[in-house]
Amino acid sequence: MTETTSFLRVFALWAAGLGAAAQYGKMSVIFDLLPGLYPQAGASLGFLVSLVGSVGILLGVVAGLMVARIRYRRALLSALWLGAGVSVFQALTPGFGWMLTSRVVEGLSHLAIVVAAPTLIAQLSAPKDRGFTLTLWGTFFGVAFAILALAGRPLALSLGLPALFAAHALYMAACALVLAASLRRLPSEEPQPPFSLPQIFRDHLTIYRSPFLSAPAAGWLFYTFSFVSILTVLPPYLDEAWRAPVMAAMPLTSIAVSMTLGVLLLRRLPAVQVVQMGFGLSALSMAWLWLSPGAPLACIALAGAMGLIQGASFTAVPQLNQGAAAQAQANGAVAQMGNLGNSIGTPIMAFGLATLGASALPLLAGGAFLMGLGAHVLLAAARRRSRRVPV
């Protein structure tokens, strides 16, 4: 365990995370432009966005197991170079079928990065700094989407879609070169059992039976279910005069709270308790929105409460699990459950709104927050029963 934090390497790994998030988000910010590239694709264009997440649902835990076996530096650098190559291929604007295939490959690159990078950040951070460094990591999606909206989309509009893909390729390659040099000396890694399909099946059972390995992923499922779906379906329920500023402020508030109040709380409380606090306050914020539909302050309060869940969930991984291999397994489960939550949240919320009306939003999202809180309470009780030190 390191006693001093290598902040330069932590920030370099976070930068790689921005590139991984851009793999997911670059198609989202230009989605309305894709029909011009593939006019015959129709509704199938949605797969260009969702395929990366679908790979995560299927192979999230497998990625955690594989990364531990082939070693974190090697896995991360290979994934970055693979991601750069895929973006170069996409810049050539291949046929629709080939573009879909490239998104599957990109999903594999994305998974390896989001498993290896936070595992390495935990290894390179002193325990006292992990609240900050892993909360920083937790901002990678929000920051990347903001950059894509502010710079990526204008680039695509002015120079064409290939320019965005080419810029992403250059960014991924630059991250690979920086990290290849900066990650030469890493903490020693424990040996792993040989890779086999039966071993992967056993490891799945081990992860999801363990109240230590599975806890961060269990909460993350309910967080991602709510976060993405709320940001997607909320705008029509806001007053038009407040709609744009509130929707812009919500993700920024979430990031700001996680990096300030969240980091402060993590210096004083175990990460799981901060996550539970975030879920409880998020549920109360949804009750506020139920009583005052579309209230701007309630929306901002909700975003702030969710910010506590964001960083503390990643910090819980090393607090609950000792050793890089166990942390990679837990991060793989987080990736799997996060992609599942992202994928099912919006369709379920949309169906609820169509059948129940506006009350579906506080009911479904509030219920998800309470289930996230309940999952952590039950898993904490299971950890106490195991006679290990509770966290």
Rank of each mutant, 00 (worst) to 15 (best):
E3W: 04
V10D: 03
M27H: 05
L37V: 13
F47N: 09
V49Q: 09
V49M: 06
V61S: 00
V67W: 05
A68V: 02
R71F: 03
Y72H: 08
L76R: 07
G85N: 02
T93K: 14
T101D: 01
V105R: 02
V105M: 00
V114N: 06
V115T: 15
A117I: 11
A117M: 11
G131T: 06
T139I: 05
F140G: 06
L150V: 00
L155K: 00
G160C: 05
F165L: 02
A169G: 07
Y171W: 12
Y171Q: 13
S182Q: 15
P194V: 11
L197F: 14
Q199A: 12
P211A: 08
Y223L: 12
V233A: 07
L234R: 03
P236R: 15
R243A: 07
M247N: 09
A249R: 07
M250W: 10
S258I: 02
R268W: 11
Q276K: 07
Q276R: 14
S282V: 07
A283P: 00
P296V: 11
G307F: 03
Q310S: 07
Q329G: 14
Q336I: 02
P347G: 11
L353K: 14
L356H: 12
A358D: 08
L364M: 13
V377N: 10
V377H: 14
S386H: 15
R387I: 07
R388M: 13
